[in-house]
Design a protein around this nucleic acid. Structure first.
Lengths: 392, 392
DNA sequence: TTTATTTGTTTAAAAAACAAACTAACTGTT
DNA sequence: AACAGTTAGTTTGTTTTTTAAACAAATAAA
C-alpha cells in the first residue's frame, strides 16, 4: 500500500523535476517552477539535493533578454552507467549507456557454445570487466538488464527459451553465485517496445512492437505501461490461429500465425517460388536489386499472411503506434505500402504503422533505459536517440 | 501533472481509508490504522471528516475480548445513489444502486421507436423522476452512466452504434439541453468487464469480459485499469480474421470471428443442421431438454469456432480471468467443458474461464460501480454482489 | 477492586510545500 | 554612469499534514 506521508510527496516532486530536466536537456530553476507548477522555493530545495547527489550540474550560457541570467540545469550523464545484454542463441550483444541514454560502448560476441553454465560465466566475466572500467564514475555501473528471447516466470526465472531449449533457469541467482548483483531480466520484445516508446514515440500510450525473427513476439505498452499478462506471457502472439486446420505447430495447435509470417517461413516459401536456394537477407537484397519478379511475389505473399495477423492484433488492441522490427521488411522498400494495402477493415483502427529505426539494438538500449528509469525511480522517461558510439 | 502538495497526500490516505472500509464492511479506527499503516491520529482526523460528510457511520457490537470495545465504521449506503442505464436497440435497462453497490431499483423499458431524439427524451424523463425520488438523500442521485452498445469517441460522443446506425451523436450535450447533467457514457462491454472485476473477481488485474450477442464485444482490464485503446475502440474483437477468404463481413474483410461465433450465427447454422426453425433461447432449452442430438452438434460446432477466437485472444493477452457473457452458453450445461477441450495450446495460457454470473445486468451494475468509484475518487473498489431488489 | 489491554483523542514536534519578501544579476534608457 | 525595470534564485515565516508519545476511556480477567 502507498502510505501517503511527507517523504512520499517529496519523492513524487523529485521524479517530476528529474523528468522535466531529461525532457528539456537544459532548464533553469525558474522554468522548472513554471512547468511543474511547484513553488520556486520547493524547486530550489530539490535542486540542491540533486546537485549534492551529483545527478545534475549547472551551466550558464549567453543571454540576450532582460533580467538576471538563468543558471541552467542538466542531467550529469557521467554519474552512472547502465548495461543492456541481449542473450540470443548464437550471439551476445552488450550495450552500455550513460545516464542520459547515450551509448558509450557496444560489443557483439559470437557464441560457440550452447551450454548454459558456460554462457552464464561468459556474461559474468563481461559484467565484471565493465564494472571495473566504470568504477571511477560517481555511481559506477549501476545495473544490468538482460533481454531474454523467451518467457520469464513471475518469480524472475527464465521460464522457457525455445531456441536454446532452456527451461526454468534461475539465471539471477546463478550470476549472484559468480559475484554479480544488480541484474534483472526481461523479455526482449518487451524491452524493444519499451525502447521504441522511450527513444522514439514518447507520446504513445498504446504502442505495439512486433519482432519478426524465428518466431513472432510482441512487446505491448498499454496506458503507458508494459503489459505482461498474468503469467508474464502476453505478447507471445505468434500462436494466434489464422488458418484453422492449417500447418501443425509445436504449440499443439494448427495454423498458427508464426507458421505463415515468421522470417524462416518466408525463406521456405521463397525457395519454392523461386526454385532456387535463398538463405540470407543478403540474398533477398541481391534479388531485389536484380528486379527479380519471383522475390517480389514471395515477399507480397508473405506480407499478406503477416497482414492477417496484424489486422487481428489491431482489432484487439486499437494501438496508436505499431512498430515492426524485421530485417526482411527493412530490405523491401515497398513493405509498408504492401502491408497497409491489406489493412482495410473499417473496424480495425490504428494511428500509424512504421518500421523500427532501432533494429537489432532495440532490446539492449531498451534494457539500458529500463535501468535508468529504475535507478532514478521515474514514472515517465523520454530519451533522445544519440547513440554516439565511443570506443572503450 | 500531479502536483505533490499536502492536500494531495491527504486525498491518497482518504481514498485508502475508504477502500478499506468498503472491503471490511465494518472496521474500527484501530484496525484501520493497522491495515493502512497510517498513524492512529491520522485515522481519527480523516474519520472525523468522513463522519461530518455523512459518508460513514458508527455502530457498536457485543465484544468478548479484553480491552475497550471498538467503534465500528461502515459506509453510509443511504448517502448517495447511482444510476446505470443500458441503451440497447430494443430496450432500456435502468438500475439504481446505493453507495455500497446494492441495487435498490431495477426497471426494464421496451422501446417502440428507434428515433434518437425520442429515446433521449425518454431517458431524460426517467432520470428526472429518479432524481426527484432520491432528492432527500444526503447527496441525492449523484451520477448516471449510460452503457452504449457501440464505440465512443475520445471526445465523449457516441461514435457508432451498429444496430441503431447512429453515428456521432453528442448524447451528453443533448441531455444537457433537457436539463440533465452529471451523465457519462461508456461502452457496454467495458462496463461489464468493470462489473465482473468489482463485484466478482476483485483480485484479477488482467481480466477479459467477452459479450456474445449480435456481435462480439469485449471489455478488457489490464494492470487493473480499463484498456480502451487509442481511439477507444479496443475490444471490438469480433473482426479478428479466423478464416481467411471466409464469409464476407460488413467491416470490409472476410472471415471475421463474429461471422462464425456470434449468437445470430448460431441460430443460422442450427436451422441448417436441424432443418427446422429455431429462433429463441427458449427453443434451444426445449431441444436440450428433449435430448435432441442435432442441437448438441450445432452447439459444439459453434463452440469450436468460438474457441479459435478465444485461443487467439488468450494468446495475445495472457489473461487471468476470462468471463463469457452469453445466453446460449448459459443454457448449455457442457459449454465450459466443450470450450476448454479446444484450448490445448501450450503457449496460450490463462488462469480460468467462467460464465458471467451477472448476465444481462452486468453493464448496468458496472455503470453504477463506476459512478461510485468516481464520486469517492477511489483508485480501487471492491463491492459485494447483494442485489437485493427493493421496489421503489 | 485492581491490573492489563485495547481503543480512541490530545498535544507537541517534524517534514514539506507555499507565499511573500528579499537579494542578485542583467538589459535598456536616460 | 546612474537608475528603472525585469527576471532568477534564496530566505523567512506560515500552513498543512503526518507522526510519536502521552493520555483518557472502556472493558475483561485476576
Amino acid at each position: 500500500m502507498v502510505t501517503g506521508d511527507g517523504s512520499y510527496i517529496k519523492k513524487i516532486n523529485r521524479s517530476n523535476i528529474l523528468s522535466e530536466i531529461f525532457e528539456h536537456h537544459k532548464i533553469s530553476r525558474a522554468s522548472l517552477s513554471k512547468v511543474t507548477g511547484l513553488n520556486k522555493a520547493t524547486i530550489s530545495v530539490q535542486v540542491n539535493d540533486l546537485l549534492k547527489e551529483d545527478l545534475i550540474y549547472e551551466t550558464q550560457e549567453e543571454h540576450h533578454s532582460v533580467g538576471r541570467r538563468p543558471i541552467l540545469l542538466s542531467i550529469n550523464e557521467k554519474a552512472a552507467y547502465f548495461l543492456g545484454i541481449d542473450l540470443d542463441h548464437d550471439q551476445l550483444l552488450f550495450n552500455i549507456t550513460d545516464l542520459k541514454g547515450n551509448t558509450v560502448k557496444y560489443e557483439k560476441v559470437d557464441l560457440h557454445t550452447d551450454i548454459y553454465d558456460e554462457i552464464v560465466t561468459l556474461i559474468a566475466d563481461h559484467i565484471k570487466n565493465y564494472e571495473a572500467f566504470f568504477s571511477s564514475a560517481r555511481y559506477g555501473l549501476v545495473q544490468t538488464v538482460i533481454a531474454i528471447h523467451g518467457t520469464i516466470s513471475t518469480d524472475n526465472r527464465i521460464h522457457f527459451i525455445p531456441r536454446n531449449q532452456w527451461r526454468e533457469k534461475d539465471i539471477l541467482s546463478d550470476l549472484n553465485k559468480l559475484g554479480i548483483h544488480n541484474v534483472t531480466i526481461e523479455n526482449n520484445a518487451n524491452l524493444s517496445a519499451y525502447a521504441e516508446r522511450i527513444f522514439q514515440y514518447h507520446k504513445s500510450e498504446n504502442l505495439l512492437n512486433i519482432n519478426l525473427s524465428s518466431g513472432i513476439g510482441a512487446g505491448i505498452v498499454i496506458n503507458g505501461e508494459l503489459h505482461k499478462g498474468y503469467h508474464g506471457h502476453a505478447g507471445e502472439m505468434g500462436h494466434m490461429i489464422i488458418y484453422p486446420k492449417g500447418k501443425p505447430c509445436r504449440c499443439g495447435n494448427e495454423g498458427c500465425w508464426e507458421r505463415y509470417a515468421s522470417e524462416p517461413t518466408f525463406f521456405e516459401n521463397a525457395k519454392k517460388i523461386l526454385e532456387r536456394n535463398i538463405e540470407t537477407h543478403a540474398d533477398i537484397k541481391q534479388l531485389l536489386n536484380e528486379k527479380n519478379e519471383g522475390i517480389i511475389r514471395a515477399l507480397n505473399d508473405w506480407i499478406s499472411n503477416l497482414a492477417i495477423g496484424l489486422n487481428n492484433v489491431i482489432n484487439l488492441y486499437n494501438p496508436e503506434m505499431i512498430v515492426l522490427n524485421s530485417p526482411i521488411l527493412k530490405i523491401y522498400p515497398d513493405s509498408l505500402i504492401e502491408i497497409k494495402k491489406h489493412l482495410i477493415s473499417s473496424v480495425s483502427q490504428y494511428r500509424d504503422i512504421v518500421l523500427s529505426g532501432l533494429g537489432a539494438k532495440a532490446s539492449v538500449v531498451g534494457a539500458c533505459a529500463m535501468g535508468i528509469q529504475h535507478f532514478l525511480e521515474l514514472p515517465h522517461l523520454t530519451l533522445s536517440e544519440t547513440n554516439n558510439s565511443i570506443a572503450i
